[in-house]
Measured scan of single mutants.
Amino acid sequence: MDEEYDVIVLGTGLTECILSGIMSVNGKKVLHMDRNPYYGGESSSITPLEELYKRFQLLEGPPESMGRGRDWNVDLIPKFLMANGQLVKMLLYTEVTRYLDFKVVEGSFVYKGGKIYKVPSTETEALASNLMGMFEKRRFRKFLVFVANFDENDPKTFEGVDPQTTSMRDVYRKFDLGQDVIDFTGHALALYRTDDYLDQPCLETVNRIKLYSESLARYGKSPYLYPLYGLGELPQGFARLSAIYGGTYMLNKPVDDIIMENGKVVGVKSEGEVARCKQLICDPSYIPDRVRKAGQVIRIICILSHPIKNTNDANSCQIIIPQNQVNRKSDIYVCMISYAHNVAAQGKYIAIASTTVETTDPEKEVEPALELLEPIDQKFVAISDLYEPIDDGCESQVFCSCSYDATTHFETTCNDIKDIYKRMAGTAFDFENMKRKQNDVFGEAEQ
């Protein structure tokens, strides 16, 4: 370990593993360490099931009705991949897709007046949907046509809207959309967690709705994908990429100290040895004095023996409960997957309800979601602090990732990755940087 590296990475969460992969592909010498004996950090999948019970201090362990412990891979952080989103792009560019198998999530649902409705995925579904009345549908269709044709580089498509100054509230007004449709559009399509976006320039919202539609167009059922064997497969896929390009991995490796000289990182000390480096990437748990708390998320993992009611017996789905429907500031989400994804025993389902904490009784906040899941065989409640770095790391060369937020997709995580890359490399992130180099010394032969 007593060696000189360009970059040392602490923690094998998804953000850290993707950055480690990119740095290795770009010719950097990388050492990647984790104090845990497993990959994934906060974003790991726990197996066998006995391990999950232990982690949540349920000492009696799983009953026999849960089947074989080894058949379970339970995500600690519930997220899906947008089919046309940035993480899929990263997987394709790096060819990490060859280590993973994905399934399309069967449906996306939205909560309205105590019931759940399928988010329409085709024009026919939209016309048949009970989510809105006849005239509302016509106006909504006009709005969707506007979004589909919108091109930020072609003012002819703006229809009198200025993407940089017109607020989204004004765009909704222009198409005369009612409150329910606005809730549905902002939260189930643009996937905002709160209503803060309404008074911001509309460009980002329009682009988010386009991303949803384009992702949906790829597979038809929903815009989301999920990897077989759980999300823990993602960091491992990128760790393989890093290793192929010469990255060194050490799990179960305690970090005793991060060594600084004149305010700059110069190395990491572990078990009496020092590895030197020019730059350091880590998750917040490794540098508690360089991060601040930015809120909390509650996630309740529920094991069920039945599909969720009114989802047409889907073996995977997402449910969004827009905040307006339950008098909150932030949406509540449910991600459900099952034995069909090799993450649970035969006939079992895993539904994870999550939201940003707003009160001193977080469990009560998630109740509307839990009511949709009854009866629940077993619950595991996790309340996590969200951390963000206190500075950009440019001076110390210590670059810290943000905690995983309450969103049900990876777009915010990818933004964090691109942002850290830019601060480390001094140049904007470009997907081309992730391409495997042809015929290089570490390149794998085609399968």
Rank of each mutant, 00 (worst) to 15 (best):
N342E: 04
I300Q: 01
K329F: 12
G220Y: 08
D313A: 05
L91F: 09
R173A: 03
G113N: 03
Q296R: 11
A148G: 08
E51Y: 14
N312G: 15
P163A: 09
L49R: 04
N26W: 08
K54E: 12
N130E: 13
E365K: 02
G160V: 04
Y111G: 02
Y404F: 11
Y111N: 06
I182T: 09
L386Q: 15
A126G: 05
I8S: 02
L100V: 14
Q296W: 08
I417L: 13
T408R: 09
V291G: 07
I300G: 05
L144F: 12
I281S: 03
A148I: 14
K221M: 14
R139C: 08
K142R: 09
T194N: 05
R299C: 01
P223V: 00
R276L: 06
S316A: 11
E51A: 04
V9K: 14
K364T: 11
V291I: 15
T359D: 14
K221S: 14
M33I: 07
Q200H: 05
S121C: 02
A128I: 13
E152D: 03
T412W: 07
K379G: 07
L144Q: 10
I18Y: 01
N262H: 08
L373I: 09
L216C: 00
A351I: 14
S20L: 01
K118S: 03
G133C: 07
S354G: 08
F431K: 13
P389H: 00
K89T: 11
E106Q: 06
E358A: 05
N312F: 07
S65L: 11
Y53H: 08
E273I: 04
I259R: 15
E365T: 04
R276N: 14
V119M: 05
D313C: 11
A353S: 02
I352L: 01
P201A: 11
F429Y: 13
A126S: 06
M66K: 00
G41H: 14
P120R: 02
P48T: 00
P155L: 07
E152V: 07
K309A: 13
F143Y: 03
E363G: 10
L76R: 12
T12S: 08
D405Y: 02
G113A: 12
D385R: 14
I390Y: 14
V266I: 15
G443P: 08
Q378R: 12
S384D: 04
R55P: 13
A445F: 11
D2E: 05
Q346Y: 13
Q378N: 14
A243F: 01
K28V: 13
E273G: 11
T166I: 07
T359P: 02
S403F: 07
D419C: 05
E16L: 05
G267H: 02
D196A: 12
A369V: 11
G178N: 01
G267P: 09
A188G: 07
D6G: 02
D170Y: 10
F431P: 06
G27V: 03
D199F: 15
E16M: 04
Y212E: 15
F380I: 12
E444A: 06
M336K: 05
C394P: 02
Q323N: 13
I321S: 00
Y229R: 15
S215F: 03
L100M: 03
P288S: 09
C282V: 15
K112I: 01
N73G: 02
L280W: 01
K118P: 04
Q236P: 05
E446V: 03
N439K: 07
I298L: 07
T15Q: 01
I300A: 01
Q397D: 12
L144W: 10
D440V: 00
S108G: 09
Q447H: 06
Q346L: 11
D180G: 10
L87Q: 02
F109L: 04
T355P: 00
Y39N: 00
N433E: 13
G113V: 05
S316V: 04
L58M: 00
M168D: 06
S270D: 01
F238C: 01
C202V: 15
S129A: 00
S384A: 00
D419Y: 01
R292K: 15
D2C: 01
D416V: 12
D377G: 08
R436L: 08
Y286F: 12
Y117I: 04
K269M: 09
L177I: 14
L386S: 10
S384M: 10
V381R: 00
D2P: 00
K142Q: 08
Y286H: 07
F56P: 14
E106G: 05
K115M: 10
K89D: 04
V206W: 01
L10Q: 04
I383N: 10
F442P: 10
Y93D: 12
V326W: 10
A239P: 03
K293Q: 01
Q346H: 10
A294S: 11
Q318R: 07
L280T: 00
L251T: 15
I22F: 14
T356I: 07
P235R: 00
